[in-house]
């Protein structure tokens, strides 16, 4: 990216960990809501789909591939999180996890609607639903962490903690993207992800410092999730080109901030970064874990039973 984010200094922190969202000084202003529509600010997936169909927003092939990665990450995570609704430890968590799932789904819809603008060998744009429901496993570009099973609540929180801090650093930088649509999607998403950071950090503290059982489970949760952290920060040819053009950043450039901020929470929770070997990943090239097939089988079944139908 050609310019560094002007608000980097204020937006890199995550507020007072002990206070939670009220004391958070992250990029989400104190009054921001993850669900309220803020007129003039909120970019809806429908707006992007419309801009794509009118030709006023058209990603180049590299940006589209990048949008597909981010869209797939968010979509697969939303699919995982949605399972918690009606199964959470408390009613408040049914709502919180549902809200995070909804936010992720919203980001997925925006990124996929945009990505669809460049795809299609016949020259026509693909819709978010074409991409979500009618691609096969190897055509998905999500990283492995997003498809990891929910496990117990601690595993879900460990996954969410890593993802939120990663997405926050990424989206914060993408608000400065030379690609106006990516920047617009990121500007909306970063505020929501700031709340996801707060939610997961608060739970990491509670579970790690709560009871012996919860501490043991939290440690276990991080242990099973941490092998998939490295993949998120791996550069490749696509990110090199996007970084050179200023449309995106090299994933490796997010790592220092990610390590510092997650490190602060882990230290406050009296936890160590798990000493585990990283998994090789491969999702960006369509090489997935064994989990994705089941996720897609469930997600796509109805749409594929009635191809061409409108819902």
């Amino acid at each position: 990216m050609s310019t560094s984010p002007e608000t980097a200094a204020e937006t890199s922190g995550h507020g007072d960990l002990n206070v939670g969202v009220k004391g958070a000084s992250g990029s989400g202003e104190a009054t921001a809501s993850a669900t309220r529509i803020t007129p003039g600010n909120a970019l809806r997936p429908e707006d992007i789909a419309l801009a794509v169909s009118r030709g006023t927003a058209k990603p180049d092939a590299d940006v589209a591939e990048f949008a597909l990665r981010l869209g797939d990450d968010a979509l697969i995570l939303a699919q995982r999180l949605g399972h918690w609704i009606s199964r959470a430890p408390e009613l408040e968590e049914d709502i919180a996890l549902g809200n995070i799932a909804l936010d992720q789904l919203g980001h997925a819809r925006s990124f996929l609607s945009y990505a669809g603008g460049a795809l299609g060998e016949d020259g026509t744009a693909k819709s978010e639903d074409d991409l979500a429901y009618f691609r096969r496993e190897h055509e998905f570009r999500s990283a492995a962490i997003f498809e990891q099973p929910n496990g117990d609540f601690a595993v879900t929180i460990a996954r969410q903690f890593v993802v939120s801090y990663y997405q926050f650093e990424l989206y914060r930088r993408l608000t400065q993207s030379t690609d106006a649509t990516l920047a617009g999607i990121a500007a909306k998403a970063v505020k929501e992800v700031d709340y996801h950071r707060d939610h997961s950090a608060q739970w990491v503290l509670r579970l790690a410092l709560g009871t012996d059982e919860s501490r043991e489970r939290m440690i276990h949760g991080f242990k099973v999730i941490w092998p998939y952290v490295d993949e998120l920060f791996r550069d490749d040819e696509l990110t090199a080109r996007l970084s050179a053009s200023g449309a995106a950043v090299e994933p490796s450039s997010l790592r220092a901030d990610f390590d510092r901020l997650t490190g602060e929470v882990l230290a406050a929770a009296e936890l160590d970064v798990p000493k585990v070997q990283p998994a090789p990943g491969g999702g960006r090239q369509g090489l997935h874990s064994e989990h994705l097939g089941y996720i897609l089988a469930e997600m796509q079944v109805l749409a594929r039973e009635y191809p061409g139908a409108s819902w």
Partner: peptide
């Protein structure tokens, strides 16, 4: 929720079930 046939319907359904909570 997991099988909603379009992403828009999935989002609406999720929001609705969340409202019920």
């Amino acid at each position: 929720i997991s099988r909603a046939p379009s992403l828009k319907r999935k989002a609406i359904l999720m929001a609705k079930v969340q409202d019920e909570a």
